[in-house]
Design a protein around this nucleic acid. Structure first.
Lengths: 133, 133
DNA sequence: GTTGTTATCAACCAATCGGTTGAGAAAGAG
DNA sequence: CTCTTTCTCAACCGATTGGTTGATAACAAC
């Protein structure tokens, strides 16, 4: 299964039922019973979904008599946007540089034959070590 | 399986191997062979991962002789951050209002007994309709 | 043509996922 | 105490996942 935090978080949000739960918890805390009500599935199934969300760190649960109200935690959501945004920015920065190179080549076409050395596809820093099997 | 775009995208990034591929593609386009090289798994396995990423709309593939260079697409990454950020903001805005209510209650303690009606947990707009089974 | 390289397709397999039902724990109400 | 409500745990089931190996397609090089 998904071993690390980020894998658990993405796995959790990969399910539309769980995304709907997160969407509703963003508006108000709710008990498993309240969360299960609009779905055409058993309370036990929703309970499993909540467990997945909790183990991903996306929600926390307190206690109120028999009830176990669920609360959305935003820290892991932050980590997710940070990850996605980092690589989106990497890519867009790369495209921006490529556009600049193409523009320079276009200039040379109209200008003269300069010795342009365009040097895209260079390596940068890297984290998230090579995935282990 | 994951039927909608967002589910496919989150599912795709739920796997550490695929996240590593995305990370490297954010720096430079690469062929399946180049992408498979650092992994301790077969080229066929990586080819499957690329198929998942492609069907999620996260990468596109062109053609160069036998090679099928992969290119990271940023549009779906944008949709993912948009989704996550929306509900993170919902939650944080809600917490901010709750803090305000608590501060007002604290004021009343020091002030006098006013007829404060604090009205959190109200409903807002909602999309992502109730998930179908 | 044949050979070599690159990548995908197909079939298989163990493990996981998302649901079910049934039993039981935990707490308030009579 | 018993009864009800709320929720979780356990066992089961079919479908999907993530890997494997083997065959094959597509193209370059010879």
């Amino acid at each position: 299964m998904a071993e690390d935090q980020l894998s658990r978080a993405f796995t959790a949000l990969a399910d539309p039922t769980r995304r709907d739960i997160v969407a509703r918890l963003s508006l108000a805390d709710a008990t498993p019973g309240q969360l299960a009500e609009p779905f055409a599935m058993s309370l036990q199934a929703v309970s499993k979904h909540l467990k997945v969300l909790e183990e991903a760190g996306l929600i926390s649960r307190s206690r109120d008599a028999q009830r176990r109200p669920c609360h959305l935690e935003t820290a892991v959501l932050d980590e997710m946007t940070a990850w996605v945004d980092r690589y989106r920015r990497n890519a867009e920065e790369r495209f921006r540089r490529l556009d600049a190179v193409l523009a320079a080549m276009d200039d040379d076409m109209h200008d003269d034959a300069h010795d342009t050395q365009h040097n895209d596809e260079h390596q940068q820093d890297e984290d998230e070590g090579v995935a282990s099997p």
